[in-house]
Design a protein around this nucleic acid. Structure first.
Lengths: 254, 254
DNA sequence: CGCTTCTTTGACGAAATTCAAAGCGTGTGG
DNA sequence: CCACACGCTTTGAATTTCGTCAAAGAAGCG
């Protein structure tokens, strides 16, 4: 198997990863998950959690460059990022890569495939990644019996729409970069990481393909942000020094 | 009430619009709807359709410029366009309008609000518009009892993600315009209209704000398309003369 | 250590925005 | 009914900006 097509290899069953019992360790294990709200809500309780457990496949660790799923693959399950960073992308006719998004732990990927029954983009690990896989048929069947789960699924899918439209409101390279940085910072903060200082786990080229800029422009904008005292950038480590001004540039719609 | 904020005024109850009985007229009435698949599938049948009927509010006619919902309004119901064209947009801090999408009959608007519980954009009628409104709480409650309906809701929301990411893959003004025209044509064709010749129901300014171009650029690109024999444009009426070449420019990811 | 890939920097040119102005339709009010 | 005003659209010219090209430096990896 080609190293960049590891896909769902090195899969390990949920039963081996966490040995059945619903204890504290189990809950911690899923705290970062997009479904934790469901798992922890008292209305569902232990037996529903056990049912949910059966649906989960834990995949990984994957390494940078490994493909999680490929555009056109038949869609059977949605995947939640448990650890690491994932990019989703498509390749156009001229061979250029367009990055649709970067996905952090607790976020769900592959949802746009629900309507089409095959993935509409390719998902690639940017560093060491762990994945939780859910059979969509089975989780939606379960959702008919667990209204909270259905609500959570609706919310999850809906959130993706908002994410997708986030980048549609900005024009200049500076605005796009500011939105990207503020969004990344916000999402890291939601997960308990520092909102000021963090690693950009993706290359400048990935950022460029995401913001639809030339890599050189990404480099120049970041340099200008640094010169203006907005941020301190050292390779892939970044510290946001003036989030107020960056937010003003981002012009996030009020 | 300000004329541009008609919102859900002039509402008429479904019961008055179609008098209770589930007959052929009733089915025709909802044929163009995004939920017609559900309504017509034999698995659901008459009594579920009757239940669905109770959820629907028919709103309209609204006229060009009327606001259907406004960003920040609390989200209670999703809306399907029954007739006319709707744009969704946000206004940024500098007062510039950013158009997020144009919506045709049978399409659903406001889905990105599910996660946030308030609308994330404003919806405005571009011409004479009829709307079907569904209480989201009630339709999702019904969905727990009608798996087909749940599936359809998942698919609908999922489809929005794909739509939102459609414009993310293209760079040049020509590409963006070509994608816009081909997408509009395709969606019209899906609804039984001509895919070659149709009305652009929105202004050049709206198109510009959607494609993130200056209105002048929109004008020039359309003129160039006409000069190159790709299309014939007369004010807001357009005829696509060479869909193959336009599609080639669009470079829709394969 | 040498290769490859990523990143940065400078110079240049193509291209789109901006600015300015005129043409065109539509609706309003005299 | 006509004249006028307003907004939309088109066109031209000037300016800015970003992408392209070229090349050098830095980092990761076998």
């Amino acid at each position: 198997m080609h190293p960049r097509e590891a896909r769902f290899a090195r899969r390990q069953c949920a039963a081996t990863a966490c040995d059945g019992a619903v204890d504290d360790a189990r809950l911690n294990f899923c705290m970062a998950c997009a479904f934790s709200h469901v798992c922890l809500s008292q209305g569902i309780g232990v037996e529903a959690l056990a049912q949910l457990d059966e649906l989960i496949d834990h995949v990984g660790p994957l390494k940078a460059g490994d493909v999680i799923f490929r555009k056109g693959d038949s869609f059977k399950s949605i995947a939640a990022v448990r650890a690491g960073t994932v990019k989703t992308c498509v390749i156009d006719r001229e061979g250029r890569e367009h990055v649709l998004g970067f996905h952090l732990p607790g976020e769900v990927i592959g949802l746009s495939a629900i309507d089409e029954s095959h993935y509409r983009c390719t998902a690639v690990a940017l560093d060491t990644v762990m994945i939780c896989q859910f059979s969509f048929d089975r989780i939606s069947a379960l959702a008919t019996r667990v209204p909270d789960l259905q609500q959570q699924l609706f919310r999850l899918i809906s959130r993706e729409i908002g994410n997708a439209t986030l980048m549609m409101g900005d024009w200049s390279p500076d605005q796009r970069m500011a939105v990207f940085l503020m969004d990344f910072s916000r999402r890291l903060a939601m997960r308990g990481f520092s909102e000021k200082r963090f690693q950009l786990t993706m290359s400048r080229i990935d950022i460029a393909n995401y913001l639809r800029l030339a890599p050189e422009t990404v480099s120049r904008v970041l340099k200008r942000f640094q010169d203006d005292g907005l941020a301190r950038i050292d390779k892939r480590e970044i510290e946001l020094l003036d989030r107020r001004r960056i937010g003003a540039i981002a012009n996030v719609v009020p």
